[in-house]
Each structure stands twice: as structure tokens, then as C-alpha cells.
């Protein structure tokens, strides 16, 4: 079947040439393995299978499962750290995260569906670099840092914007995400117009940030004031929504977001 299906229909994990599997036990080992030609990291695998359907044929898969350092959520006084291997299910039900950043786990719980959420990870969501995946928008509103493992030890920080621009270390191993803690932080995500337009709003005692995105556009950070949508760049338009619509609908989403936060 494998041979006869080849070329007739989209290649899948089942029909593609079999990759070599390498298991990483530590961060340095993962970095070494990812530096090999044709190597890709595997977290949950839920996006990787779609990449196969789109023609990817990695020569090597680097299994990250055993790299314990990439797991877990820690809440410190100044920041929240979320390990790259944290699944959507674990993150969206984390009580410490809920206490530290109300509204964020609830927003995280909106992503994907129950079956996918148990396997898919925050790291895979970001590193797949697909505009229709929503974590980079949520993290943009939170002003989060993406921290990549550095070859000599330690980490290198990048923003969600850097990730889209490809300004990340190579080989890329996302280690954790760091969200700065702000006094009075609250968060909401307005997703009712997805896939056309979604908006996240993060307010805290010293200000805040909004982020807006669509199925096809990279998220854009905006100031969270009443004039927010006038700051939307003119290039923010895609085959489905015009710039005019994005501004109008974005203003409505922002109003709803404010109401949601006021109601808490």
C-alpha cells in the first residue's frame, strides 16, 4: 500500500520514507542531534503529521519526550516559566498558572479540541510557525519571551515577533516561555470571530497590551487604549478581511474584551 499510494495522493507519515529516530535524553544531546542534517524535533507530533502531508520528509526525528528539563510550569515572583513540552491540557488546567495570570489558562483551553489538547504542546504550537495557531498571539499580548537552549548552556531569548522573522538560534530548541509577572494582571481572549479575526487583551496596573491576528496574518501588538485600532498597520488585511473590516471588527472585539475584564 505504501508504494502504491506514493505520489497518487498526499504523502503521509505512513507513505513517506521512514525517518531515523534519535532519542534525546538531555538538552545538550537534543541540540547535538538537531544539528544533524535533516533533523527535526518531535514533541506531540500533532503538527508534524500535517507537515508530512504537505511534503516534508525529515531524515531524522529527534524525540524530546525524555528531556525532563523542557517540562513543567513554575511561577516565580518576577516571571512565569512554561516548559516547551507543556501540553495544552496541562497548561490550561494548571492551578498555579490560573492564580498567577487569571484568564490565560482559560484562553489556552480554547485552543484545538480535547483529543488534540492532551498531546499537543505549547512548544510545537509556536515552532510550527503557522499563523492559524494561536499561542503566538496570546504570548504577544503578554509580552512573553521565548527562550531557546544555547549550545554552550543557558538560553537565548527571542520575542514571538522574532520567531516569525526567523531570528532564532539554530539549531532551534525552544526551552521554555517566560511571561513577566505584572501587578493586577488580567487577560482575556476574544475568539468568536475566528478564523477571521481574534484579539487578546492583557491589562495590568501599569498598562497592558492587545494583540490581534487572523488565520493568515502574523499577530500584531497594539496599545490597549481606546484608539488601539487606529494603530493597526495598513498592511493588516488578508484575502478574507479588509483593513477596514479588521479595524471595525477589532474595535468590537476590544470592547467585548474590556467588558469581559470589567465583569470579573
Amino acid at each position: 500500500m505504501r508504494a502504491s499510494a506514493h505520489g497518487l495522493i498526499a504523502t503521509t507519515i505512513a507513505t513517506a520514507p521512514r525517518a531515523e529516530l534519535r532519542r534525546a535524553a538531555s538538552v545538550p544531546e537534543a541540540l547535538d542531534l538537531l544539528a544533524l542534517p535533516g533533523a527535526v524535533a518531535v514533541a506531540g507530533g500533532t503538527d508534524l503529521c500535517a507537515q508530512y502531508n504537505e511534503g516534508a520528509q525529515p531524515a531524522r526525528l529527534v524525540a524530546l519526550d525524555a528531556v525532563e528539563e523542557l517540562r513543567g510550569i513554575t511561577v516565580a515572583a518576577d516571571e512565569i516559566r512554561i516548559g516547551a513540552l507543556t501540553t495544552h491540557a496541562a497548561g490550561s488546567t494548571s492551578a498555579p498558572l490560573r492564580a498567577a495570570l487569571p484568564g490565560f489558562p482559560e484562553a489556552w483551553a480554547m485552543l484545538a479540541n480535547p483529543r488534540v489538547r492532551f498531546r499537543a504542546t505549547i512548544g510545537g504550537n509556536l515552532m510550527a510557525r503557522r499563523t492559524r495557531y494561536e499561542m503566538s498571539l496570546l504570548l504577544t499580548a503578554l509580552g512573553a519571551e521565548l527562550r531557546f537552549a544555547a549550545p554552550g548552556g543557558g538560553v537565548v531569548a527571542a520575542s514571538a515577533h522574532d520567531l516569525w522573522e526567523g531570528r532564532i538560534p539554530q539549531p532551534a530548541l525552544l526551552h521554555h516561555i517566560a511571561i513577566p509577572r505584572r501587578r493586577g494582571a488580567r487577560f482575556t481572549y476574544q475568539r468568536a470571530l475566528r478564523p477571521q479575526l481574534t484579539l487578546a487583551l492583557h491589562l495590568h496596573d501599569a498598562g497592558g497590551l492587545a494583540a490581534i491576528g487572523t488565520e493568515w496574518l502574523r499577530p500584531v501588538a497594539l496599545p490597549p487604549d481606546d484608539d488601539t485600532l487606529s494603530a493597526l498597520p495598513g498592511s493588516f488585511a488578508d484575502p478574507v478581511i479588509s483593513h477596514w473590516y479588521a479595524r471595525r471588527a477589532g474595535a468590537t472585539l476590544l470592547r467585548r474584551a474590556r467588558e469581559a475584564l470589567d465583569a470579573r
Binding site: 507530533g45 519526550d65 492532551f118
Partner: peptide, 13 residues
């Protein structure tokens, strides 16, 4: 005990 798409998991998992 957790639901998963077996088409998108590798055997080693």
C-alpha cells in the same frame, strides 16, 4: 487514558 490520534503518533511514543 488520554485520547490521541494514533495516525499522528510515532510507534516509539
Amino acid at each position: 487514558g488520554e485520547p490521541a490520534a494514533s495516525c499522528a503518533m510515532f510507534a516509539y511514543q
